[in-house]
Design a protein around this nucleic acid. Structure first.
Lengths: 201, 201
DNA sequence: CATGTTAGTTCATTCACCGAACCGTGATAC
DNA sequence: GTATCACGGTTCGGTGAATGAACTAACATG
């Protein structure tokens, strides 16, 4: 619980919302899920979050109906976590928070640009497409790297994938384009290899 | 800090946003400020938050530029906390989160309804007025109690004020309409008297 | 001068987060 | 077949933040 249980008389749904979304890491998990992150290891490498916390957050979000846990492989049992329709509706507040941050906290220019995938236009506030004038749902959005992303040293699979334009909700691929070596410096985590073998069969 | 300091390589402003807004209680403080709560005691009584935490959150929000601390009385030095323009821009994400919660988490119907004050229409997502079609800024919004608020037992000044329609950002009044007595049951906090004396001079 | 009000701070306890280590299951290497 | 590795967790001890109660400061009231 994000705010103690004594909420019997609390008067607005905002508090209830924060009970579901307000804990540390939770909104970042949701944002990653919107970008197509589905697997435990990808969340973990990209967010650099303790596994125990990630596990608890994923379970809580499944419990709350924001994520759905889905078996995608039985051999070693593996699940992935995907947004439910209820979770996808969080696009509005998530984008609004992101755009607020871009306006007021991004010193080096925007880091992520959100485009309407059908016409390519940049999204304006409220997820409104500058060309169509319509409000664009998450399914029609593409993230592109912005100028503020220049010096991004992260080497995890999600960060690498998002260095190119990426359709929201489209799964992060199993591997990247075979960067042969010279990547094992940094702080030990963030390895990219591995899934290639299983995926190749 | 909401998420540890190791954010050198973090890739989206969303994380930075959550460093400012993501801590426990912070968004509730902002939401209260949008409703016109300005004084330490009113925040404290309405949110039922430990004073130490409230003090820390208010200072952090002032530091971040979301709130402005403003002396309103010198006799005993007293400050009030009001939203800056940057803080007022948080209306869009705050409303979006509130509306998401109302849709998905409010079992007994909506608790708060947000109306465009000039034409009276209910606000749609993105703070768009159903009648005008324009996006409505916080300054033109009125909160009204919704059907889900039926059994609201809270007796603090803010809750009492919000039982009637209230213009957003309009300060919570110093006192209510003299409910003579019969209010000192409950759990000890939440007293309403007191400010009448000073205000009357 | 005793009491009350408001906005804090201080302090001890409790709780959540953290990182490291460990575990279970299956795949791969030898 | 056995050793090793990858993945997705769980367990556990240490740390830091949240909590609630008590205390303080500055003034007002009676």
């Amino acid at each position: 619980m994000a705010l103690g249980k004594n909420y019997d008389g609390q008067d607005c749904s905002f508090a209830k919302t924060l009970e579901v979304l307000g804990e540390r890491w939770t909104l970042l998990v949701i944002r990653d899920a919107m970008c197509g992150v589905r697997r435990f290891g990808d969340f973990q490498a990209h967010l650099d979050i303790p596994k125990a916390v990630l596990s608890q957050r994923l379970s809580a979000l499944v419990e709350a109906g924001v994520l759905e846990r889905r078996r995608y492989q039985d051999a070693p049992p593996r699940d992935e976590y995907v947004l439910t329709p209820m979770g996808r509706e969080l696009w509005v507040p998530v984008l609004a928070l992101a755009q607020w941050g871009e306006r007021h906290l991004a010193a080096n220019g925007h880091r992520r640009l959100y485009h309407h995938v059908t016409c390519g236009s940049l999204l304006e506030p409220y997820s409104i497409c500058g060309t169509c004038g319509r409000s664009v749902p998450l399914e029609e959005v593409e993230v592109r790297p912005g100028p503020g992303l220049r010096d991004d040293a992260r080497t995890d699979l999600v960060s690498l994938t998002l260095r190119s334009p990426h359709r929201m909700l489209a799964p992060i691929p199993d591997k990247m384009g075979e960067t042969p070596e010279g990547r094992s410096h940094e702080l030990g985590g963030n390895r990219v290899r591995g899934r290639a073998a299983r995926a190749a069969r």
